[in-house]
Amino acid sequence: MSLVISVEKTQNPKEKPDPSSLGFGQVFTDHMFVMDYTEGKGWHDPKIVPYGPMEFEPSTMIFHYGQAIFEGLKAYKTKEGKVLLFRPQKNMERINISNERLCIPEIDTDFALEALKALIKLEKDWIPEAEGTSLYIRPFIIATDPFLGVRPSLTYKFIIILSPVGAYYKEGINPVKIYVESDYVRAVRGGIGYAKTPGNYACSLKSQVEANKKGYTQVLWLDGVEKKYVEEVGTMNVFFNIDNEVITPSLEGSILAGVTRDSTIELLKSWGVKVTERKITIEELYDAHAKGTLIEAFGTGTAAVISPIGELSWNDNVIKINDGKIGSLSSKIYETLTGIQYGKVEDKFGWTVEV
């Protein structure tokens, strides 16, 4: 893609937030990347502009038919001042997997990564350096035709925004409490569960709200047909250490192929840990707990990296996992992945990319 990115710098730079008070997704940097798509012309007019409101007609298709996709990754600053990305090409590739499912034109992944790097270089001073902080990166594509009618849009915008963030969960690396959803469903095979698209998250909100009222941090979804097979938590893939075998639900079209999930599997295998990707029922988990073979459970995702699971509630049956404490394997994975991301641990896999 032989495109040149134009740059318009802000005339009103914002004050940087106090790193110690950072939450997640609440503060945004001075600039954003924007590129347009027009049928017959392709992707064009890439530019970096001041972050701010965008104007759309009320009839714009994204508002009515939900044709959109997004991604999430992070930039990390090392103690030497280098800026590292963690497997960004995997996120760019997944954009096109989501694009294909949502009938959105594919992007040039190499150009998208170069655009992302250009934006981060401009916003380098926004990357926080306090322990556990990073710069969250949100690329997304939305349908922009001003048209009321069910068809793929003929125009789109590809946008990247940046947000300095602290820990995703207020619990930090401490185990989270998970509510197992038995009534509502999120996705089925043949649907859009494997794509990173807003609709997957919109349909999860009702259950999430009800789980929060009961004191639970997140929802664990079961399959949408039999409601017995474990799939994923709303913001992360899940792993279960049963009798020293780490089991994670297999990718069968209804759950997201997480980058951190894939990294965790590679890491565990490199340590000689037995990892199995297969269907697993919620009953099997509860039976394993009753037998004392459910050693630990954890979730994986870009936002929190590793989230130990300390409690599950399924049909009012509550079980504590590893006495509600972080497991040794969860801790080792977390320390290793974050160590690689921040340049503290040798990257034997070639996962990090310097900006």
Rank of each mutant, 00 (worst) to 15 (best):
S250W: 07
G324W: 02
V273N: 05
N315W: 07
R151S: 09
I48C: 06
M92Q: 10
G72P: 04
A303Y: 00
N317I: 08
E245R: 11
Q67S: 08
S263I: 08
T144I: 03
N12K: 15
E335T: 15
K325L: 02
S328P: 07
G215P: 12
T264P: 07
Q341M: 14
V246C: 02
I141C: 00
K269L: 01
V185A: 14
V34R: 13
P19I: 02
L251E: 00
T60P: 09
I160C: 01
V185Y: 11
V209E: 14
G272S: 14
Y201W: 10
D243M: 07
I309F: 01
V273K: 15
G327H: 04
A303S: 12
F86L: 01
A202C: 12
E55R: 15
V49K: 05
F298Y: 09
Y194A: 15
F111C: 13
Q11G: 06
G324I: 04
I280Q: 05
E311A: 10
S134L: 02
L122N: 06
K124G: 02
L294C: 11
I160H: 02
G81W: 04
D287E: 14
E106T: 14
F147Q: 11
E232H: 11
N322L: 03
V188N: 06
L113H: 12
N237F: 03
D262C: 06
G224P: 07
Q218M: 06
P19V: 03
A288E: 05
D110L: 14
L251Y: 02
W126P: 10
T260K: 09
K177L: 09
Q26P: 13
H44R: 11
K348Q: 05
S182A: 15
E277L: 15
P164I: 14
S153N: 00
K9W: 00
Y136D: 09
M35P: 11
T10Q: 02
L267R: 13
T109S: 11
G199V: 10
G132Q: 05
S21G: 08
G199C: 12
L84S: 05
M54W: 10
K228E: 08
Y169L: 08
P198Q: 09
